[in-house]
């Protein structure tokens, strides 16, 4: 079983093994491809490993991001001003891989652009570009097979979201398809709005551990270094998206042009998050 052997040696698996050996949680940074423009995004993307990101989630922009709050909606809109396509996202990943062979990259988005490109073509090209995993927000396990078959064939991890509403009856169907790590959505809501509550996250992660031995990353509702440290204490990784994207939004002028030094500012904020997460010992 070469495919299985390969995927257990993936960047994601190796990264979580390393974090475990170092007895510390990981920091997952989310940025939307080409936000706020291709040049600034490239600087941010390429600087994230140095800033302490253990995994990078790259948003594939969609015109109708139904599970996202205002921050990531605006981020997608900024990206789409440059007509960012899946091809462009994959080109950015390929470009990144020339510099960094170790940091796992997870592509996150909605199904329609993938469906229109073709699930087989998408999986082949994402793997060839050097992506490691895929999150498709609006593809529950019931609808996932038509993409999953191609992700498996290309040794890409299919990373699934679980939510506070996912019941014990429902979790096995999700986990049966999940690989790499399991993503726990800490709030019942859209990205970047409510705050993740520590006690609820602790209980939820404990419940997930009864179903899986996969690493668990927690996201949605983590906005500050303190919150990231608190949450990361209970799981293998903390994911921050909207708060990073907000720093980008705040650094744009009326015409949407980035202020000088914006990428450094974003990376500085990412570093403060990474440092806080890494301070949370396991």
């Amino acid at each position: 079983m070469n495919a299985v052997a390969d995927i257990t040696q993936s960047r994601i698996t190796r990264r979580f093994a390393k974090l475990k050996a170092e007895k510390r949680p990981g920091f997952v940074a989310f940025v939307t491809a080409n936000d706020p423009n291709p040049e600034t995004f490239r600087e941010i993307f390429h600087g994230l490993p140095q800033a302490g990101a253990d995994v990078i989630e790259v948003g594939m922009p969609f015109s109708d991001p139904m599970a996202d709050g205002p921050s990531i909606q605006a981020s997608s809109q900024r990206s789409l001003k440059f007509n960012t396509s899946l091809k462009d996202v994959l080109a950015a990943v390929r470009d990144f891989r020339k510099l960094d062979q170790d940091t796992p990259i997870v592509l996150m988005g909605y199904y329609n652009p993938i469906y229109v490109m073709g699930p087989a073509k998408f999986a082949e090209q994402a793997a060839a570009a050097g992506a490691d995993g895929v999150i498709v927000v609006d593809l529950p396990p019931e609808e996932a097979e038509e993409l999953d078959v191609h992700l498996r064939a290309n040794r890409l991890h299919f990373i699934f979201l679980t939510a506070p509403t996912s019941s014990d009856e429902r979790l096995p169907a999700i986990i049966a398809r999940a690989s790499g790590f399991l993503y726990y959505v800490a709030v019942a809501g859209i990205t970047g709005t409510k705050s993740a509550e520590e006690f609820a996250v602790k209980d939820a992660v404990a419940r997930l551990r009864r179903h899986t031995s996969l690493p668990i990353a927690v996201g949605f509702g983590i906005r500050t270094p303190d919150a990231a440290r608190t949450i990361a204490h209970h799981c293998e990784a903390a994911v921050v998206g909207s708060a990073i994207v907000d720093v980008i939004a705040q650094g744009l002028n009326q015409e949407g042009q980035p202020a000088p030094g914006l990428s450094q500012k974003v990376l500085g904020f990412a570093k403060s998050l990474a440092d806080a997460v890494h301070a949370a010992q396991h």
């Binding site: 599970a67 609808e143 509403t165 959505v185």
Partner: peptide, 10 residues
Amino acid sequence: GRYVAETLMP
């Protein structure tokens, strides 16, 4: 079909 985020599936 049902193409929705996991939070809504249940």
